[in-house]
Design a protein around this nucleic acid. Structure first.
Length: 194
DNA sequence: AACGGAAACG
DNA sequence: CGTTTCCGTT
């Protein structure tokens, strides 16, 4: 319990391509001011197979996804936010605001295709969360896998310190960032992933 | 389709 | 603040 692992959060133990910890998707598991954001919602849809025909990870570039049915995604988003007048024109404006924030960027030339900047994502949700553990904590193995891959990638999901993670992995540079020695004081909502 | 300024909203 | 709304421009 001590050390910040007390919060009972079940990690999504999905069969295929274990993705992000719960707080990355779900409003209720990311307390504070960070609920109901558009990119949460996008991730949420991306996670569910039933929306595969609407939005899906793009094979190829890591973190890239395609909105297959733009107006449907907009409708869903509008439903979530109680904005019945939502459409793709407006939704895409919101997505464009993510460019400067470095949460997303556009894949030029590919229609309705965007790409997540995952390293930014992880820090937004839980600063230093992914850089604190050079080696797996005892008993942490069954808990959250801190790093995740879109299912399109050959998912070698590992814990920090996993050799398989370090090389060539897009997260590797994050996990092995020079900030490794920064003392880690996780906020309460962050402890679930310890 | 995609971009980004501007104003407004909660 | 993170959008929503609207719109002129490319």
């Amino acid at each position: 319990q001590a050390g910040g692992c007390s919060v009972a959060v079940s990690c999504p133990a999905h069969s295929a391509g274990l993705a992000f910890p719960d707080w990355a998707y779900k409003a209720e598991s990311s307390p504070g001011s960070r609920q109901n954001q558009l990119w949460h919602f996008i991730l949420e849809l991306l996670q569910q197979e039933e929306f595969r025909h609407v939005i899906a990870w793009q094979q190829g570039e890591y973190g890239e996804f395609v909105i297959k049915d733009p107006e449907e995604v907009a409708r869903l988003w509008g439903q979530r936010k109680c904005k019945p007048q939502m459409n793709y024109d407006k939704l895409s404006r919101a997505l464009r605001y993510y460019y400067n924030k470095r949460i997303l960027h556009k894949t030029k030339g590919k229609r309705f295709t965007y790409k997540f900047n995952f390293s930014k994502l992880i820090f937004l949700n839980c600063p230093l969360w992914d850089v604190r553990c050079p080696s797996p904590l005892p008993g942490a193995g069954s808990l959250c896998h801190p790093l995740a891959l879109p299912p399109s990638m050959p998912s070698q999901v590992g814990v920090p310190g996993d050799p398989g993670l370090a090389g060539g992995h897009p997260w590797g540079q994050v996990a092995l960032s020079p900030h490794c020695h920064v003392p880690f004081h996780p906020p309460s909502w962050c402890q679930a992933c310890c």
